[in-house]
Structure formats: C-alpha cells, structure tokens
Design a protein around this nucleic acid. Structure first.
Lengths: 142, 142
DNA sequence: GCAAGATAATTAGCATTGCTAAGTATATGC
DNA sequence: GCATATACTTAGCAATGCTAATTATCTTGC
C-alpha cells in the first residue's frame, strides 16, 4: 500500500508543479534537461542517461534548447563525434525563475500542513529521495 | 529547500514508474484517466477536472479509451449533451496489471532502503499525500 | 413557445515529446 | 587501412497538451 500511495502522491505533486512550469513557456522535457546542465556541461549521451530518454529524443531536445538560446554547443576537441551542451546566461535565468515559482508553490502548500505533518515530511525527505533513486535505478530490470 | 527536494524526488519517482507503465502499451494520460474511472463512471467534464486538462484534451483521451476497448460511453438520460465514461472489463484488467507492476517496482525499491528509512517514509506518507493535494489545489492561484 | 445565451463535447490545427529505424561522421581495433 | 563500434542526427509515427471554432443541447427571459 505504501508503494501505491507514494505513486499517487508523486503524480499529484508533479501535476501541480507542471502547471506552475507552464508559464515559463518552455516544455517540461527541455526544462528538465536544462536543469541537468546546472551542474556543468554535459554530452548528449550523458543527458540521455540522466533523463532516461533515447538518443534521438535528447538530440531533439538539445536542438530546441539551442534554438531558443537556452544552451549552446561546445565541441569536444578529443572526440569529433560528440559535443557538450552548456547553459547560457538566459538558460540560467530561466531555471532560476522556474525554481522560484516552483518553490513558492510548494512552500505555500507545505504551509497549509499541520506542524506535525511538516515535521514528518522533513524527517522523511532523505528516505524519499533514496526511494526515488532506487525506483529510477531499477528501470532496466522491472 | 524541502520544497525543491520534494520536487526532485517526485520527478524521479514518476520517471521510474513511467518506465514500468510503458509496457502496458497505453500512454500515461489514458492510463491515468482510466484509473479515475475505477471509482465509478464519470462525465468528461468530471474527468477533465480530475486530470486538470482541457475539455479538448480529455475528449481525445476518452475517444482513445473507447477506441481501444478500455472504456465505453454511457448516455445521460437527463442531459443529451453529456455522456459518461465507464470502465470495461478489459480496462479493469489493464489497470490491475499496471498496478501490480507499479507496486512491485516500488516495493523492490523500498526494500533497498534501511529500516529507518522505511519507518520514516511510512510515518510521512499521510503528510506527503496532503502536501501533494495542496499543491494540486493551488493550481489556479500560483 | 421561442429566441438568446450558457454549457458539454467535438473537431481542427499547432507544438512538444516519446519511440524505432536508418543515416552520417568519427574513433578504435585487428 | 578496413571493419566495427560509438555519438549523434534525421525522418516518420503516435500520444498529449493547448487554443479557437463548431455542434448539439439545455436553460432563461419574455
């Protein structure tokens, strides 16, 4: 039952958050890929692995990010086949804006909870992150 | 920060789960709408509200469910404009199958956690569900 | 009872996002 | 240096989201 309830809660969370993201004018896939670039430039292969999508899909998402000026292409001197994507200043600004909106919405929601609920959430967040990671990791087997 | 981490965890959870759902051969939107019908027949308007999508989108999702035999149309005697969607036996079987796969994956992930993590998760699940609902509810304002 | 407006759903047209399959360019291994 | 592997791109399909415009039906006001 815990598993089922986790799923439902995650679904609702994402749906509410997606509503906030919509007004950024950038689709969810691009937004998510862009946020991966926060931790530094990444090859398309690395992005595809992080986002768990096919090479074809990440290629198009990358093309979209470049076309809209949110990322740029950086050639790899040691391998002419691959190139890395790097955030532009505009990309960084957009991610900041989106993050502020998301956090504002989530914090407003968390404020509606009782202090006990907040306490329970705070002490479970580490476990929740680890659980989420386990689910993601298990993709190939399950 | 809690807000941000909640978001990241929910994102990873959903991404992992979606991989499991893929092998059902039914897209996520249809799957989610179909699961709403578990609690009984619903008008398209009710479905749109539950799924937080436009009337146009739910109309097409409903058409897909009917075309693939997962739901059927039930006329409303008191209002000729509207009709309700009702799950078929095939729809119910599909949802059961998907749910089993999802739960299996999530339970496998939860088993990887330490007992302390599991305990923390279990005692936070109520709070998490309430938080998710608050986020979803806030859609119009934020 | 009938015209005017509201409401439920559909259709058309567009963009995004996912896939697989096929193609191109570059690296690597024998 | 030729065969194979790897990184990415392109093309084509389906699903999903939107807005705008249409259709059918219901409700209101007279």
């Amino acid at each position: 039952m815990l598993a089922d309830r986790l799923h439902g809660a995650a679904l609702h969370l994402m749906r509410g958050i997606r509503q906030a993201d919509r007004r950024l004018g950038v689709g969810p896939a691009r937004l998510s890929a862009l946020s991966v670039l926060l931790s530094g430039p990444k090859t398309l292969s690395e992005l595809a692995e992080a986002e768990q999508v096919s090479a074809a899909t990440i290629s198009r998402i990358g093309a979209g990010l470049i076309r809209t000026g949110l990322a740029r292409r950086v050639p790899n001197p040691s391998d002419g086949r691959s190139a890395r994507l790097e955030m532009t200043a505009a990309g960084r600004r957009l991610i900041s804006r989106g993050r502020r909106a998301r956090v504002a919405r989530l914090e407003a929601a968390v404020r509606q909870l009782t202090p006990e609920d907040r306490k329970a959430l705070a002490s479970a967040i580490d476990a929740l992150e680890r659980a989420a990671w386990e689910v993601l990791k298990s993709r190939r087997g399950g």
